[in-house]
Design a protein around this nucleic acid. Structure first.
Length: 168
DNA sequence: CCCTGATTCGC
DNA sequence: GCGAATCAGG
């Protein structure tokens, strides 16, 4: 296989680069080259200045106000899915309060700070310091900061977890 | 420590 | 022309 800079590969490089993919992403995509190779080529091609993600119009909304009522633990996530968390042992009181219309699994919408609105769930997913951070983004009641699923997590009675004594 | 792109320079 | 090594930054 020809892993040199054939016209074809150069074309893909140009395209991907202009689309805003990172050098390492492109390198992985093309295969057989390192990100350094990609960057080097990019420069030699003279297309160093890439497409900026947009000057970006003003944020749709202030989108910031979360600050959870009580810092919950990070939700369990698998790829793009939210997996229903364990129903929390048997803290269950008498009355069965849970019609629990929450689906077992619902895809995130991967909202960014720019796409959050009054009606999107602002539950943070991932490490905010990382580029792949995003917000849940599922539909929420207007004015309610989280989707149904995350509301349950956010407004839980702070885990009254008393560690059970060692099982005899 | 993870990642980014930019630059250098021997090949 | 190529790209590893390095640099500078987030």
């Amino acid at each position: 296989m020809d892993l040199s800079w054939t016209d074809d590969r150069v074309e893909r490089l140009k395209t991907l680069w202009m689309e805003g993919h990172s050098a390492s992403q492109i390198a992985a995509e093309l295969g057989g080259v390192t990100r350094n190779a990609v960057i080097g080529k990019v420069h030699r091609l003279g297309l160093s200045g890439r497409a900026k993600p947009q000057p970006q119009a003003a944020r749709p909304r202030k989108a910031r106000e979360p600050s959870h009522p009580m810092r919950p633990v990070a939700p369990i996530t698998i790829g793009n899915l939210a997996v229903k968390a364990e129903p929390m042992a048997e803290a269950a009181p008498e009355v069965a309060p849970a019609p629990a219309p929450v689906p077992e699994v619902v895809p995130f919408e991967r909202a960014t700070i720019l796409t959050l609105t009054e009606q999107t769930c602002k539950w943070p997913i991932g490490d905010p310091s990382r580029a792949d951070f995003f917000f849940c983004g599922r539909k929420s009641e207007s004015g309610v900061p989280y989707c149904t699923y995350h509301c349950r997590m956010a407004y839980q009675p702070a885990h009254d977890r008393r560690r059970d004594r060692k099982a005899s």
